[in-house]
Design a protein around this nucleic acid. Structure first.
Lengths: 157, 157
DNA sequence: TATTGTTATACTCTATAACTATA
DNA sequence: TATAGTTATAGAGTATAACAATA
């Protein structure tokens, strides 16, 4: 009796149609969306006073970590479109938290740097982030936090 | 020598200021946002032809699972505001995928049900979801998928 | 030709506030 | 009073397309 060369075995739950994709609670994307939404809402509440969004804080943080970074560099690190990056940088520049400047090496590029107000805002924001992350991590052991970050990283790397 | 009653020990990495929150790559929310964005983009690409968003598919699916559900019931399951739910239901109703009806028991409520076109669309959407989830799950072992869902669920439950 | 920044445009999501009808 | 739906409004994120300047 010849053996089948099994590359992958898919088990169909008993009593369920093989064509059925299953239940919505088994969809990873569904949970990812709900989890993101919950964290987004808590973030927004935490940051009402500062008036900053997740994206805006991320941009301030990344510019602080990489002074003089160009908008395309920011786009790559944030996995955003150029136009989307523009919109966010525009808002931060309008609030005088971030400044555009010319690139000494490439006339097409802009250099981005935090203003003094931007640095102060980032410091305050990091305090709020700490509280926000504590709220988030309170559900997990340190080991679980590490696992969660590992698994999430595989989705965006 | 008295022992300290340690509830939680927080270890500060050597050479790092205790006031420093750390690096952005250690922030769970940062990875969650990037992961969500990556999955969102792949979802959008997968669903360009159908012209459905994540939220819209979730609503169709939930209405199919719970025929006659009210908009507030939908709001709770999707963790959305009433007004946000309205906007999404409006779009689906305008495309004749979903129908509003009166509630037999409560004059304030609306019942929601899929139209025939809505049921057909959902069936097609589920096929696309299957491909989308396969892409997503290809990074993980079945065990890791279960862990990821477990950890994400703790964030939105 | 390719890259970078820019502008214009459009759609979706999200939430708040205020209003109406019903319980 | 509280709940459900509705409407209006506003801000933010997302992407596409087209354009100008530079490499």
């Amino acid at each position: 009796m010849p053996r089948a060369k099994e590359v992958l075995t898919i088990t169909t739950p008993p009593g369920e149609d093989a064509e059925d994709i299953g239940e919505i609670r088994d969809i990873v994307g569904f949970h990812l969306r709900l989890a993101h939404g919950a964290v987004y809402r808590h973030f927004t509440e935490t940051f009402t006073d500062l008036g900053l969004t997740q994206k805006q804080v991320s941009v301030l943080w990344l510019v602080d970590d990489h002074p003089g970074i160009a908008q395309t560099g920011l786009s790559q690190r944030m996995r955003m479109d150029r136009a989307t990056t523009m919109a966010i940088v525009n808002r931060l520049e309008a609030r005088d938290l971030l400044a555009r400047g010319p690139s000494p090496t490439d006339g097409r590029k802009q250099t981005l740097n935090l203003t003094e107000a931007g640095k102060a805002m980032l410091a305050t924001a990091k305090e709020a982030i700490r509280a926000h992350e504590d709220w988030l991590k309170s559900r997990y052991t340190p080991r679980e936090v590490a696992v969660l970050i590992e698994l999430l990283t595989r989705l965006h790397e």
